[in-house]
Design a binder for these strands. Structure first.
Length: 431
DNA sequence: TCTGGGGTCCTAGGACCC
DNA sequence: TCTGGGGTCCTAGGACCC
């Protein structure tokens, strides 16, 4: 049996942990740069606010509406969801984290657990210890567990935990479940399935397996079909190590000059290096992309990507930043208004041992950079992200003190909440 | 004026090897 | 006239997820 535990309206629930006055009030959380709605409370959903609505449209569509609006605050969300995972780790025989707000658990070879009671108890503990509401779906496959979790969220009678453990419950659950909501069935497949008269998850599960395999022509969708029929097919991903890492942002205002872009790219590259070190890996390739604002059809458009191979794979901030800046110089074209840039690191491998290049001209350099990064990571962990950065990450001051970092003012976050769990100074900001 | 930021996997086709 | 059988690697495009 599998369980999926996911945080209800995750980002909204994180914001409410330190703002209990917002219980029962419509709350939305915005994407980076305060672009569009990415999370909604149940009250906001009931008002008809759609996911993905741009902020300026939200204000046009719901003028004067009473609602709380937050910029996204991933530092806070990462911390609180990490606490949820630490409880799951203690309560489940085996688990793996699937996303920021979801965790799978499994009970292979475990006998005699009352799963329904287990799930209900987990909900209570997480709510009490972290303040986060979670829902638990339990079933013989991960896809069915996802279906169960949907019912756990919607019907209070389930006490936040729904268990599908009989054929009768499976059929009943699938018959009331639209096929496009099934995990693994996106818009494209849903449209094709509709052409065959398939409306519910049950209709889909009732198709012949050979037909799914040949007419839809893909082993992935076939696996989803088999999972709905109770077979366990989707592999567990216990030790997932990212194969590529990307840090990119849109800017509050457009950036025309190489100097401005260079600072942004330095910050994105530095974040990529940090993420590489956090998962104990190095990268062989550093890529950079820049583009103009596609919504501004009145302006000239330009998009480009360039990558650079490192002589020796690395996770050193200085090395990754310098490679990214060289790549940027090759693609930068003057005369455009740039709206977004990003850094991608690829060719990722474990950091022990590293295969050094035979003709590396600076032997010993790697170890020195490693010690530098270890010291910087430690300081930033103790005193807050981006307390200490490279000079190239510092934005040029304009009549004031220059700021640095991915979270500097160049990226809009007008409604950001404090970080009382990771920054001492923010404890004072609590209401 | 204002429109996000991450990821994964599969398949087909081309180029190449013996 | 008749022209095999077995691979690998890379890339682009398409689909999905949160």
């Amino acid at each position: 049996m599998y369980g999926i535990i996911d945080c209800d309206n995750c980002y909204v629930s994180c914001e409410r942990v330190f703002r209990p006055d917002l219980e029962g009030v419509p709350v939305v959380v915005l994407s980076n740069n305060d672009g569009c709605v990415v999370a909604r409370s149940n009250e906001a959903k009931a008002m008809g606010i759609k996911a993905g609505t741009p902020l300026y449209q939200l204000r046009q569509l719901f003028p004067g509406a009473k609602m709380a609006i937050f910029s996204s605050n991933y530092e806070l969300y990462g911390e609180l969801t990490g606490r949820v995972v630490s409880i799951i780790r203690a309560e489940a025989p085996a688990y793996f984290r699937y996303s920021i707000d979801e965790c799978f658990v499994y009970f292979q070879g475990v006998e005699g657990i009352d799963l329904k009671a287990w799930g209900e108890a987990l909900h209570r503990k997480v709510k009490r210890w972290v303040g986060m509401p979670v829902s638990i779906g339990l079933a013989p496959s991960k896809t069915l567990a996802k279906v169960a979790s949907h019912y756990a969220k919607r019907y209070p009678g389930y006490h936040h935990c729904c268990l599908i453990d009989t054929e009768e419950k499976r059929i009943k659950a699938l018959q009331q479940y639209p096929v496009e909501e099934v995990w693994g069935v996106g818009r494209r497949y849903a449209a094709r399935l509709a052409g065959y008269g398939v409306k519910t998850a049950y209709d889909f599960a009732q198709l012949h397996g050979d037909f799914v395999r040949t007419a839809l022509g893909n082993v992935v969708i076939y696996r989803t079909w088999a999972e709905l029929n109770g077979q366990d097919c989707v592999p567990n991903e216990e030790y997932a190590q990212k194969k590529s890492i990307c840090t990119s942002r849109s800017f509050a205002s457009m950036v025309p000059d190489l100097q401005g872009l260079t600072t942004h790219v330095a910050n994105f590259a530095a974040r990529c290096a940090e993420k590489l070190r956090a998962q104990h890996t190095v990268a062989q390739v550093v890529g950079v992309f820049i583009h103009t604002n596609p919504f501004r059809e009145d302006l000239g458009q330009y998009w480009s990507f360039e990558e650079e191979q490192l002589v020796t794979p690395s996770n050193a901030t200085l090395t990754i930043v310098q490679a990214a800046q060289r790549a940027l110089q090759r693609i930068f074209r003057p005369g455009y208004q740039y709206k977004k840039a990003g850094v991608i690191v690829m060719g990722i491998q474990g950091d022990t041992p590293i295969q050094h290049d035979l003709f590396d001209l600076q032997p010993g350099q790697y170890e020195r950079l490693q010690r530098l990064d270890q010291a910087m990571d430690r300081i930033n962990r103790l005193y807050g992200t981006e307390t200490l950065v490279l000079g190239s990450q510092q934005y040029t001051p304009q009549g004031g003190e220059g700021k640095a970092g991915v979270f500097a003012d160049a990226i809009r976050h007008d409604h950001r909440s404090p970080n009382p769990t990771t920054r001492w100074c923010d404890v004072m900001k609590l209401k």
